[in-house]
Computed example of a mutant assay.
Amino acid sequence: MTTSNDQVPADRKLRILMLHGFTQSGHSFEIKTKALKKSLEKAFPAAPKPGHLKEYPGGLELVYPTAPIRLDPDDVVPSSSSAPGAGADVGKDGPDVQSESYGWWRRKGDAQPYTYEGMERGFERIASVLQEHSTEPFAGVIGFSQGGAAAGMVASLLEPDRRHAFETAQAKGGMRYPDSFVKDTGYIEETVHPPMRFAVSNSGFSAAMANAGLYQAFYEPKIMTSMLHVLGTVDTVVGEDRSLKLVESCVGGSGEGGKRVVYHPGGHFLPSSQKAYVAALVNFIRDVLGEDGGSGDAPAGGEKKEERAEDMDVPF
């Protein structure tokens, strides 16, 4: 079934990959972002509701996979802003030290340079989810903390020519391009999923600070995918320097092929219920998709159009 105007399938959804943090799970992350999900569903409804996206008339779908590495209590060691390791993801309710504690990788080593043990398994899990939706691809990826770092990596891995950058770096001791992200059609090797249209990192960081030589290919050349970076002003788990290192690894500017930085007045958590953050996220997605202000009908009742992120009272 397709729409009559531009032949976009009427059930095509704005599908977003949601990557949880260290010591969390897909289930716990979904619970923690319940308010955000509700806000995004309202912002991106299914047609013919006012404000729907012409390119995604089927509404919104968030997919929450769980990382493959089950963590032991010994793995859950809170870190400070000066520690470059993964650390425990601390929200308003404290560390997620529970039975559902998973990670996309573990930090190995007590001093720099660190390595991220199990990263291949983490990417295999993500690649399998991407392949499951290859016929109806994801539009973007949103991650928190370790998941925020992974969001930047996934966006990077799916970009054109990124594999060549890994091959060049590998010759100098860098990490090999993940085999799980390679799709061999028998004629030409492609990635398992098209490039992401956008990525969002909440309290994320650059792996290059742990081991520049090993992980630099994720960030050089710079990530071209449009990225929104959200940082907490009093985050003591992931220091600002680590998050800004990821920001610096993305192309400059705003809109398509650009980066934006938003600070929220809080610590190490995703501010899913803060109106300023949600509005910034919604406007960022609309701008990237080229449907700023909504490509569907204007909201009824004379409601004001949402402010552009750069016009809002939030520091960038």
Rank of each mutant, 00 (worst) to 15 (best):
A111K: 14
S80Q: 12
V200K: 04
F22A: 00
D11V: 08
V63G: 05
A309C: 11
L62S: 05
L246I: 09
V192S: 07
R162V: 02
R121I: 02
S206A: 15
L71Q: 00
V141F: 02
M196Y: 08
E124P: 01
H20T: 07
K49F: 13
S101I: 00
G255N: 10
T115C: 08
L289H: 00
G173Q: 13
Q24K: 06
V97T: 15
P221M: 06
D72V: 11
G94A: 02
A165F: 01
D89K: 10
L289G: 01
Q131Y: 08
F44H: 07
S4A: 14
F205Q: 03
D179C: 11
S128Y: 13
P65H: 06
G173D: 07
T135K: 15
S145C: 11
S25N: 06
Q7F: 11
V90M: 07
G239D: 02
F284I: 03
A298G: 08
V247A: 13
Q98P: 08
L281S: 01
S203D: 06
K304A: 05
I31S: 07
P9W: 09
A88D: 04
G186W: 03
G174W: 09
V282G: 04
E136M: 10
N5F: 14
V278F: 05
Y263G: 10
L17I: 08
S25F: 00
D110S: 15
T191W: 12
I142L: 14
V230F: 02
R163L: 12
D287S: 03
H264C: 09
R12S: 01
H27F: 14
E124I: 06
M196S: 07
H268S: 14
K305Y: 10
I126C: 02
R260V: 07
G302S: 08
V314N: 01
P299Y: 01
Y64C: 03
S249H: 09
D74W: 15
F269N: 06
M227S: 05
K183M: 15
T115M: 13
T115F: 09
A210Q: 05
